[in-house]
Design a protein around this nucleic acid. Structure first.
Length: 467
RNA sequence: GUCCCCAUCGUCUAGAGGCUCAGGACUCCGCUCUUUCAAGGCGGCAACACGGGUUCAAAUCCCGUUGGGGACGCCA
């Protein structure tokens, strides 16, 4: 059997991490099985669906390199097919017209809640004669749910789950305005697309039982289900805007790498022994949706950051340059000229070793491209007060008079020698030098910095401070 | 309220009856390296929610309790 999976977001917002992980698991499983993975946009609610959301979702998936097979399926374009099935169900006696008004249903819910009964439609039009229909009320079509017995679902992740059918109510298939509901559309589309494995968030677990009834009524074979646990916020509740997590693309802006995000998300709720760092290709060979854990995982930005640092260090310098440049330019508010770019490229190996995100890297790289005189932070100013300033004077004079090649190792040799002559430690000389050259008290190795800045720029920065 | 699910270090997890007085990763804390900061190396703190069973033996199986989460829309 060829495995077919799908990711079916509704275009009501951005692609959040939970959705991204669901998509990832669908992709991983399909590819693991040599099957196909599809994308379907669930835009059956015209009131909530937005074109901008579709763009955001596609952008997010593309960024993460979660690529689907074939064309995108828009549920809204399958409208006629959904309606056809609704009427088919009606004809089979598996569905019926319901003339309840919204207000009536609301009252029903309140009454049920107060009486301690399950909140849901009480089936009042289930067997009622349609001739009793009130005037002027456009009916909905509801499924005539099998109320006896129980439904068993052998979920690939949750295991065997049993629900009494009397817990299910007759859900609406077609709204009063004749548009299909999600509950109908998913089933029809999954069936027509030949979806074999429905992998989705476990907030849909109960829906599987309702949907099972539609499959049954239509005489269709039901796909296998895998309800994966939701991702929770640090406080243990379902991830929401309240947690400040936005679209997956926000993580791009925050300086995360897509491969790091994918690695982290895949590792959330799933593992392959002690493996922490792996490529998507490796995950494809190891992944089985049956191995996904049943308990919810909390989103931990610290671990994501650590994984990101790992990938950042291994990223090639020119690629990193392309990613970091926009961050840097927005920080200094101007474009980086050729000289600056050369410096950044030369500095990249030690810059990336000290950053965990592109943003951190950009911030740390700033001093390389800022125009003179570069700003000094508070600690650097302290460093360049009385004694530091005196040392800097000696350094400047010495370096300006030196004829040795301006290269990290020879600069270090020279300054070590100077330290001995002056009866000072290397640190005593290096600290003021660092402050003047970088404007800060922490930086990449200072002789490397001096080499990259070049003789002229370095001396100029020293004299800027002395002036 | 009704139904469903879950439960190993702070977090992500390994563990599918004996190999485990529970392993890895992140975080945190030491030490080391060192011109600063990182990285690297070494080390440390830290968990089987609780109570009953079953068994020669339970983190692993069963029941209950507690705690947490999710679903109950003419949303998806």
């Amino acid at each position: 059997m060829k495995v077919v999976t799908r990711f079916a977001p509704s275009p009501t917002g951005f692609l959040h991490v939970g959705g991204a992980r669901t998509a990832l698991f669908n992709l991983l499983y399909a590819r693991h099985c040599g099957g196909s993975f599809h994308l379907r946009i669930e835009d059956t609610d015209p009131l909530r669906s937005k074109a901008a959301s579709i763009d955001a979702i596609l952008a997010g998936l593309n960024w993460l390199n979660i690529l689907w097979n074939g064309d995108i399926i828009f549920q809204s374009k399958r409208y006629n097919r959904h309606i056809e099935v609704a009427y088919d169900l009606l004809k089979r006696g598996a569905a019926y017209y319901c003339y309840c008004t919204m207000q009536e249903l609301e009252e029903m819910r309140v009454a049920a809640k107060n009486a301690g009964r399950p909140i849901g439609y009480d089936g009042r039009w289930r067997d009622r004669d349609p001739r009793e229909a009130p005037q002027g009320v456009r009916p909905t079509i509801r499924l005539r749910v099998q109320r006896e017995g129980e439904t068993i679902l052998d979920d690939l992740v949750q295991g065997r789950v049993t629900v009494m059918n009397k817990q299910l109510d007759d859900m609406i298939l077609l709204r009063a305005d004749a548009t299909p509901t999600y509950m109908l559309s998913v089933v029809v589309d999954d069936h027509d697309m030949g979806v074999t494995h429905v992998i989705r968030g476990d907030d849909h677990l109960m829906n599987a039982f309702r949907q099972a009834q539609i499959y049954q009524a239509m005489g269709w074979e039901r796909p296998l289900f895998a309800h994966i646990p939701l991702i929770h916020g640090p406080d243990g509740t379902k991830l929401s805007k309240r947690h400040g997590v936005l679209g997956v693309e926000t993580y791009r802006k925050m300086g995360f790498l897509p491969e790091a995000v994918c690695n982290y998300l895949t590792r959330l709720g799933w593992s392959h022994g002690d493996m922490e760092i792996f490529t998507t290709e490796q995950a494809v060979t190891w992944f089985d949706v049956r191995d996904v854990g049943r308990s919810a995982a909390r989103f931990d930005i610290a671990k994501l950051t650590a994984i990101n640092a790992h990938y950042l260090r291994r990223k090639d310098d020119s690629h990193l340059m392309r990613l970091a440049l926009p961050h840097i330019e927005s920080l200094i508010g101007m474009s980086v000229e050729r000289v600056g770019r050369c410096r950044l490229e030369a500095a990249m190996p030690s810059l990336k070793l000290r950053a965990r995100t592109i943003s951190e890297l950009a911030k740390a790289a700033l001093f390389y491209v800022q125009p003179r005189p570069i700003p000094l932070d508070e600690k650097a100013c302290q460093q360049l007060a009385s004694v530091g300033r005196a040392i800097l004077t000696i350094l400047a004079e010495h370096l300006a008079g030196s004829v040795r090649v301006w290269e990290a190792q020879s600069l270090e040799d020279e300054i070590r020698q100077l330290a001995i002559e002056q009866n000072l430690t290397l640190g005593a000389l290096a600290r003021p030098l660092r402050a003047a050259l970088t404007g800060a008290v922490v930086s990449p190795p200072i002789f490397e910095v001096a080499q990259i800045l070049g003789r002229e720029e370095s001396l100029a920065r020293l004299y800027d401070v002395l002036a």
